[in-house]
Nucleic acid binder design. Sequence first.
RNA 1: GGGCCCGUAGCUCAGCUGGACAGAGCAGGGGAUUUCUAAUCCCCAGGUCGGAGGUUCGAGUCCUCCCGGGCCCGCCA
Length: 613
Amino acid sequence: MRALTSRRENSIAPITPPVEAGWEVKYNLIPMKEIVRSRIEQALGELYKIDPPEFKVEKPKDEELGDLATNVAFLLSKALRKNPNEIAKELSEKLSQEDMFEAVEAVRGFINLRLSRNFILSEFRRLLSEGEDYFKEDIGRGLKVQLEFVSANPTGPLHLGHGRGAVVGDALARLFEFYGFNITREYYINDAGRQVYILGVSVFYRYLELFGKEGERPGIKKLFEEEGYKGEYVIEIAKALKGAVGDLLLSRDGVPEAKERILSYGFDFPLSYTSAFKPVREPEVELCSAFGLDMMMEEIREDLGSMCVDFDVWFSERSLYERGLVDKLIEELRERGYVYEAEGALWLKTSQFGDDKDRVLRKSDGTYTYFASDIAYHWDKFKRGFDKVIDLWGADHHGYIPRVKASLKMLRIPEDWLEVYLIQMVKFFREGKEVKMSKRAGTFVPLREALNEVGPDAVRFLFLTKRSDTPLDFDVDKAKEKSSDNPVFYVQYAHARISGVFREVKERFNLDPEKEDLSPFLESLEEDIELKLMKKTLMIKDELIDITLRRDPHLITYFLIDLAGLFHHYYNHHRIIGSEKRIMKGRLALLKGIRTALRLSLKLIGVSAPERM
RNA sequence: GGGCCCGUAGCUCAGCUGGACAGAGCAGGGGAUUUCUAAUCCCCAGGUCGGAGGUUCGAGUCCUCCCGGGCCCGCCA
């Protein structure tokens, strides 16, 4: 996911180790890279008596070089008027006295650090005793963050692109929650405006069709043919409607009775729009709208639910109008001098704040634009006291960002309060051919179809195998394959294998690795790969924090595949059961730590961690 | 015409806010299993990072231009 503003602007809570805290305290409070950073900073202070620059601590490209490396010598070379390599050498010497490092080496200006066995073992023991809390940090400190995502129009079923937004948004929400943010997941329902009327027309037309009477309402027929929703689902709604009300809606007089019938019919989903229904101009069409909205929202909720995505708030656009918030907003903007009238419409001077041109708030026919209610919506979010709002929009809305940002500036809302990320389209492939999606023609591939065929775990995982602002190809046939082409199974299998070993051990040795404290036996592990596995597992802490601050949840799938791969390799080359007792126990401890990391990471992307497969 | 995004191995994509010889999976070829699940593992191959300049000690990464692909540019939602 790429930020629209710079990463620095976007960062919520940079991890700044408390200056006054001693090393022992930090040792227990911050991720690996930060622990190392603080050691380097201290060494710099002692050596050169200077304020350390903004340097990097990162994994070297080649693992052979070390566990971590820093570029600090390059950055200091100007200030100290010294050759980077010379600085690196001096610093290496200093750092090698630390017992957390096994080796510190200066190579062409880089400083490569290898963590000591003792340090890794002590960290891993901590992981075993703390479980997933080991990876946790209170970065958010309760900061109120709202994540608005999906927000698909309730005029049709969710398609794959919405599913992608749901998965990315939910994963972000889970990450933020894990790191101490107070998260609200919100879905904005566009239940106002013309599209809702068109939904009603479409449902009503299909309803008439069921009685063979569509020809009797030429106005409805024409509108349906020109603008109606042609998808199969509209027919389903019409059928359900007919089931509940019979032929009552064929005459306008039947509308009040029809409403009562729907409410008492025994639908097992909430009928909030139907309950609130009040006839205005075309009661039969409007009742169809209300019932259509109820049924669509139910379907949307179900689809999201089957991917384990749920929202704290389902926010109705209509409610903004009912509360008079749109009018109030326009009044507010007018007072600030940003609103003017031209050609019978009401305009907002967004061009003053970076938009290409001014935008219409109220059309000359007196109705409001979607834009108007959307600003009102964000204004309302601000007034609800969120410290930060993150929106995930479909990529086709990208041109919309400048005008929303401009209007927020007019309302004196801080620039970095709103972050917007774009979710790119998903192309659907079946048998190697693309299945085109078009809502109007009704040929789009609903999310439900993919979920039924492929299953929620694979769908979620696959949606996170690519950065979300680039288009994604979704190949159903591949997704269904239970092969290594499908990385979700590869990762889940690693988890299932560990669980399998634990079951076996319980049975054969009456030893329960879940309950028993096996951490003292880590000492008996002497293979390089075992140390490597520990390091990789521990470094997940750094990865997860990074991913959260960068809002790049797709990277989770990459380190999962990486960790699972190393584990599978290990598993194929080393016996756990059958090795010497103390080694077996050490290996069980190792597996337990790995499993904790796998479980947590899978949980954060909402994928299940099966005990067996 | 303007704006946004993308262009890395035959294919699908990573590349951690400029750093050390450019990575993974798939596809292709060859091997491993009487053992804790073979949905696994091991070995082999492949790229002038779309092109050209520039900034820098250092560029796949930043800047400019060009080429190619996608999306968006409504008093639609």
